[in-house]
Design a protein around this nucleic acid. Structure first.
Lengths: 116, 116
DNA sequence: TGAACATATGAACATCTATTCAGATGAATG
DNA sequence: CATTCATCTGAATAGATGTTCATATGTTCA
């Protein structure tokens, strides 16, 4: 980027500084946007919402969503590594469930926003 | 994808159907994930959070974030087209502000989640 | 009107992302 | 222990995304 600074009345430099003080830390902002990035894919939202209703194994999820088992598994990996889901093995099947229902509150709030 | 269906006890087909009934509509899910997609970039979260503090013009935002005017403008275009920000022209400058503070509630909830 | 300034935009580019495909892993079962 | 089944994983690929650069637009002011 260039270091261009516009000439709008000098007082606004103070405003910028005031706003800067109230900003979230850069790390926190990145963490927050990382969470939203995970919710920014409809497949993952569907998986989370399904697991909110019921514990499900991989093949049930792929049947529910009409997606390949592989695609679902890749997305589950992302959800696992962000600690949004947990899983247990039962024989050949692996059952997934929500690690924390808090994430559903976020989704529901997104739903509220979308409905407006 | 392949149409493979696993052989887990037949009763689970009923479970899948039960869950399917409780799922959000596909369009709504896409709309929701589209909102999260917008929040899934730290630059946009920073811009929204800054505008929550104060109405700002483009060059103030770019000074605040240490980003080029062009990059900020491109992001503002995305925020504009999702109706998250509004703007008014004042001479040469264009001042942006939040269209709806509701989006901040979402961000704050993301912050809560991130802090855990 | 022309120069200076603030912002917007299109093209180009590098990076990231989601899915598919092929094959590996790990558990049950005969 | 070989086979079958459910799941996982790595490589490949196509499409999306964010930034930069150059330039266009629109406003002010001399």
């Amino acid at each position: 980027m260039n270091d261009y600074i516009c000439n709008i009345e000098s007082i606004n430099k103070e405003i910028v500084e005031e706003v800067r003080k109230k900003m979230l830390s850069s790390e926190l902002t990145v963490q927050v946007s990382d969470i939203f990035k995970i919710l920014g894919d409809s497949t993952r939202v569907k998986i989370l919402y399904a697991l909110f209703q019921e514990e499900l194994c991989v093949c049930e999820i792929s049947a529910l969503l009409g997606m390949s088992q592989s695609a679902v598994s890749h997305q589950l990996r992302i959800l696992r590594s962000s600690n949004l889901v947990k899983f247990r093995r039962e024989g050949k099947a692996v059952y997934y469930s929500l690690a924390d229902e808090h994430i559903i509150k976020l989704i529901e709030m997104g739903v509220e926003h979308a409905k407006e």
